[in-house]
């Protein structure tokens, strides 16, 4: 079980809380210790909107351990409206095929169980096709 690790990362995982660099205003996700743009120390929390578009995607038919239950699942690199990209699963895909450039929005979902079904449930961001 890896409770401390999941607990430590909950803000960014549950709600896409990143950082805004106090020196150069860059929006940063996931949070980092040093701003990748200006090398200043980054630590001001910033709530991302959760809006973005698919930069690339693939379908996992052969899942690594811990993800078998959800197979097949789609993973994507999503370009967030605020600039940064993030790797995440896509969910709630209907009949429409996934396309690069497709607008998506963040939802909070179960990612997996820590260990077996006795372990804690780990929640985190996924993206789905924008509703409406």
């Amino acid at each position: 079980m890896e409770i401390p690790r999941h607990w430590r990362l909950k803000k960014q995982r549950y709600a896409l809380v990143g950082e805004v660099c106090p020196h150069c205003e860059a929006k940063i996700f996931p949070p980092r210790d040093v701003c990748p743009h200006c090398s200043g120390e980054a630590k001001t929390p910033y709530q991302f909107s959760g809006q973005g578009e698919v930069y690339s995607y693939t379908v996992m038919n052969d899942a690594p351990a811990g993800f078998e239950e959800n197979t097949p699942y789609t993973v994507a690199v999503v370009k967030l409206a605020e600039g940064p990209m993030v790797t995440a699963q896509l969910t709630d895909l209907g009949a429409e095929p996934v396309k690069i450039g497709m607008p998506v929005e963040m939802v909070t979902r179960r990612i997996r169980s820590d260990g077996n079904d006795r372990g804690m449930i780990v929640y985190g961001y996924k993206f789905r096709p924008v509703m409406q």
């Binding site: 549950y14 959800n70 969910t91 709630d92 939802v107 979902r109 179960r110 449930i121």
Partner: peptide
């Protein structure tokens, strides 16, 4: 869905 439960739906 497989990744949904009362917590995610409540959120």
């Amino acid at each position: 869905g497989l990744d949904e439960d009362v917590i995610t739906m409540s959120v």
